[in-house]
């Protein structure tokens, strides 16, 4: 597994997408500034294949999901539709982040196929593993801890 490269460009791309899509403001932070033990988290992930292959995922607090859906849909957080669509909205946000990230890292010539995003619970132990492996960038997003993980699987 290759270590994460182009961190500055990836971070800028990520922050721009979250701001443009969901009106969420993110700042890159050192991962040890964040706490991942005091609440429930989810991991949204999707695979890319093509001239390179790997996985892009987002780890975020479950309580951030309704805010993301509400902001994308332009609805109140207590709207029933927001809770119905929270997982779909987070998956689509990842889809857009992934598309921008692949262009940032590989340029605009290579062609990639993307799998549908999957959103599922993740344990604090699994999060620590992602951090230890050095494949993630940490952000404070509206004061919540968020990890963007980019795992390239070619060249192993």
């Amino acid at each position: 597994m290759q270590q994460l490269e182009n961190i500055e460009a990836i971070s800028e791309s990520f922050c721009t997408v979250l701001e443009d899509l969901a009106f969420l403001f993110s700042d890159p932070v050192a991962v040890d500034e964040l706490t991942f033990d005091d609440q429930s988290f989810v991991q949204a992930s999707m695979q890319y294949t093509g001239s390179d292959q790997g996985q892009v995922s987002l780890v975020l607090p479950k309580r951030l999901m309704p805010m993301i859906a509400a902001n994308i849909l332009g609805l109140d957080e207590d709207d029933d539709l927001v809770h119905d669509k929270a997982s779909d909205a987070v998956g689509e946000m990842l889809n857009i982040v992934c598309g921008q990230l692949l262009t940032t890292v590989f340029g605009d010539e290579p062609v990639f196929d993307l799998s549908p995003p999957v959103v599922q619970p993740v344990t604090s132990q699994q999060i620590k593993q992602l951090i230890v492996e050095g494949k993630s960038v940490a952000f404070s997003t509206d004061d919540e801890p968020v990890l963007l993980c980019f795992e390239r699987k070619l060249g192993e």
Binding site: C98, G99, T103, D108, E109, P110, F112
Partner: peptide, 9 residues
């Protein structure tokens, strides 16, 4: 309307 960034595609 896509996330696609590949000019080739």
């Amino acid at each position: 309307v896509s996330t696609e960034g590949s000019q080739t595609r």
